[in-house]
Amino acid sequence: MSFNKKRMFMIVCILAIVLLSACGGTEGTASSANGKAEEKPTIQMGQISWAENIAVTNMWKVILENEGYDVEFNLLDMGTQMAALANDKLDINLEVWLPVQDAEYVKQYQDEVNFSEETWYDNAKVGLVVPTYLEDIHSIEDLNKYQAEFDGEITGFDPGAGTMIVTQDVIEEYGLDYKLIPSSEPAMVTELENAIKAEEPIVVPLWNPHRVFSEMELKYLEDPKKVYGEAEKIYHATRQGFAEEYPEVSEWIKNWKMDDEAIGSLMSEVAKAEENGEKAIIGAEKWVEENQDLVNEWLNR
C-alpha cells in the first residue's frame, strides 16, 4: 500500500471512530434526557412546628419517598405558607382548619390557592384550656374574675396561626382584660408543663388532636358564644396547578383519612423517636411500616 493510500485509510478510520463516538454520545445523551424526564420532581411541603403537623408531614415524606418522590420541608408559619402557596413557592400545606380557625386565610386566598374539599380528620376541637386543678374556672366568662392569678396573660404559640387570630377575637368578644402572648408550640407546651409541676394558674389555646391531653390533666373552658366554633375539620391546600402536575399524589392525599387512634399512634411514635434523640422521621417510618394496610388504602392498593 502506498504512503498516500495508507494516509487516506488512516483518515477514514479516524473519521469512522469519531462518527461512531458521536452517535454513541448522542444516544447516551438521549438516554440521560429520558432518564431525567422520568425522574419524579421534588415536592415542596409546608411544615409548622405543631406536634400533629410534624407527625403528618413526616409521615407523608416517608410515603411519597417510598413511591419515588423527593420531599423538602419548608418550616413556615401559617400566614407565610398561605402566601407561598398563592405565589407558587410552595406545593402543599397539609393542615387547614375549618370552618373557623383558618377561615380568614380561605377568604384571603380563595382565588389563588386550591383548598381541598376532602377532610383528613373530622373530630378536631379548639379552645382555651386550663389544668383540671383550677376547679373554680369552667368557662371563658370566668377568666376576668381570676385575671390577677393569671397575670392577665394567655400563653399562646405561633403568631400567624389561625387559632391565635381567633383567640384574639375571643378576647374582644368576651371583653377579657388579658394579653395574648405569642411564642411557639414547643415553648407554650413547656410553659404549660412547668405551670402544672408548680400547680400554678395558666391558660393556653389548644386543640385536639394533641399529645398533651394524654400526658396532662387538662380541661377545655366552655365557650358559650361559640367563638371557637364547635367541631373543626382538617383539610389540605395546594398551589394552583398542583393536581395537574402531580395527579397521583393529589389523589392519594384526597384519599387520606385518619381517626383518633391513627393520629394518636402516629404522634406517639414520632414523640418516642424525638425523646430518644432521633429525628421525627424515624418514628414516622416505624408507623408507616406498621400501618401499611391503611397507607395502601390511601394509595388505592
Results as ranks from 00 to 15, higher is better:
S2K: 10
R7W: 10
V12T: 14
I14V: 12
I14D: 09
L15M: 14
L15V: 15
A16C: 13
I17F: 05
S21I: 15
C23V: 15
G25T: 14
E27D: 13
G28A: 15
T29Q: 13
A33G: 09
T42W: 04
I43V: 09
I43P: 00
Q44M: 10
Q47D: 09
I48K: 00
W50K: 13
A51S: 07
N53T: 15
I54F: 03
A55C: 01
V56I: 14
W60M: 06
W60E: 05
K61F: 03
N66D: 15
G68V: 15
Y69V: 09
L76D: 03
L76W: 00
M78H: 12
M78D: 12
M82K: 01
M82C: 04
M82V: 01
A84Y: 08
L85I: 06
A86R: 09
D88R: 08
K89H: 12
L90Q: 07
L90E: 05
D91K: 05
I92N: 02
I92C: 04
E95F: 05
E95A: 04
W97C: 08
P99Y: 08
P99M: 13
V100F: 03
D102I: 06
D102W: 01
V106P: 02
K107Q: 11
Y109F: 09
Q110H: 12
D111P: 02
V113A: 02
S116A: 07
S116D: 04
E117L: 11
T119K: 06
T119E: 12
A124C: 14
A124V: 14
A124K: 07
G127P: 00
G127N: 03
P131C: 11
Y133C: 10
D136V: 12
I140H: 00
N144S: 08
N144K: 07
K145Y: 04
K145G: 02
Y146S: 07
E149T: 13
G156H: 02
F157G: 05
A161Y: 04
T163A: 13
M164C: 09
M164T: 13
I165N: 03
T167R: 08
T167H: 05
D169Y: 05
V170F: 06
E173S: 12
E173W: 05
E173G: 08
E173A: 13
Y174Q: 14
D177S: 14
Y178D: 05
P182I: 15
S184H: 04
E185C: 02
A187P: 02
V189S: 03
V189L: 09
T190V: 13
P201K: 07
I202P: 03
V203G: 00
P205H: 03
P205R: 02
L206R: 06
W207F: 04
N208W: 05
P209M: 09
S214R: 08
M216N: 12
E217F: 06
L218K: 11
L221A: 09
D223W: 04
P224G: 07
K226R: 14
V227M: 12
Y228H: 08
Y228L: 07
G229F: 07
E230Y: 04
E232V: 15
E232S: 14
I234K: 01
I234F: 01
Y235V: 13
Y246V: 12
S250Q: 13
S250G: 12
E251V: 07
M258N: 06
M258S: 01
D260I: 11
D260L: 11
M267T: 04
S268C: 01
V270Q: 11
K272F: 06
A273R: 06
N276T: 15
G277N: 13
K279S: 07
V288M: 14
E290Q: 12
L294S: 13
V295S: 06
V295Y: 00
